[in-house]
Design a protein around this nucleic acid. Sequence first.
DNA 1: TCGCATTAGTCTCAAAACGAGATCATGTTC
DNA 2: GAACATGATCTCGTTTTGAGACTAATGCGA
Lengths: 135, 135
Amino acid sequence: MKREPLSKGETPDIAEAVLNAGFDISTCPVRDVMDHIGGKWSSLMLLVLSTKPHRFGELKRAVPDISQRMLTQTLRDLQRDGYISRHVFATVPPSVEYRLTPLGESLMPALRALVAWAVDNHPRIAEARQTFDAA
Amino acid sequence: MKREPLSKGETPDIAEAVLNAGFDISTCPVRDVMDHIGGKWSSLMLLVLSTKPHRFGELKRAVPDISQRMLTQTLRDLQRDGYISRHVFATVPPSVEYRLTPLGESLMPALRALVAWAVDNHPRIAEARQTFDAA
DNA sequence: TCGCATTAGTCTCAAAACGAGATCATGTTC
DNA sequence: GAACATGATCTCGTTTTGAGACTAATGCGA
């Protein structure tokens, strides 16, 4: 995903938007962050891990409709960005534990706020969707 | 994406997680909402539209690396869920304006909180990523 | 009057992401 | 010695996404 730096002249609108939100477009950390935690499974993983550390199999059972492939990949992405840490125990069969890092923890309030909003407004969304589909 | 209702016995972990977060797994509004606003472009659209209504072309210029195809689709999805409204003006060439609905507005505080977190913690994420890639 | 530009999309085709399921290595248990 | 559990990878086919050409109607300049 290549993103060219943008001159202000070319993009007055986004410039305004991002400045309002308090960030610089040329680096645009929002996308950098949102693209990851906004992924299909990431927020769910973080939510589950925020309750307590989990092992790979536990996560798989906790989010039943994720494929193992996506689980592995999501965990690696989250680990790469420093949200979670991975601890291997040399048992047999080997077990691996995933847990939130302090960085991951620090994200949770904002994420929970979003979840709370989702819960509160879900009926309205469902209604909007029905109205739209009827037309 | 079909999701079977789950018995508590099968999924003690997620049950705990979702109950902590305050929602019911069998309907899981979180995914329903997150899958959409967590999309690659949705949050960006909402952010841009939160500053003022925009026309199609303005949005395209504001987010230069979105394809027209994705712009159309993202807008339609957001409209379907009731976050934004679409107003056609019968000028020539026709112009179309998109703006946040009250529902969309109500989401902004939570979204902005997430954006603020992203801005604050972007350096830490970049650092974690570098550390990870070095290994 | 002959293009040419503008606007909001759509269409087509290639590339990337994703899901399902088989497969692996390994030591423990029966 | 065969089945089992674990964390992870491989292959394959489907879905989603991206790039870019194409459409409609009309105003504008040459």
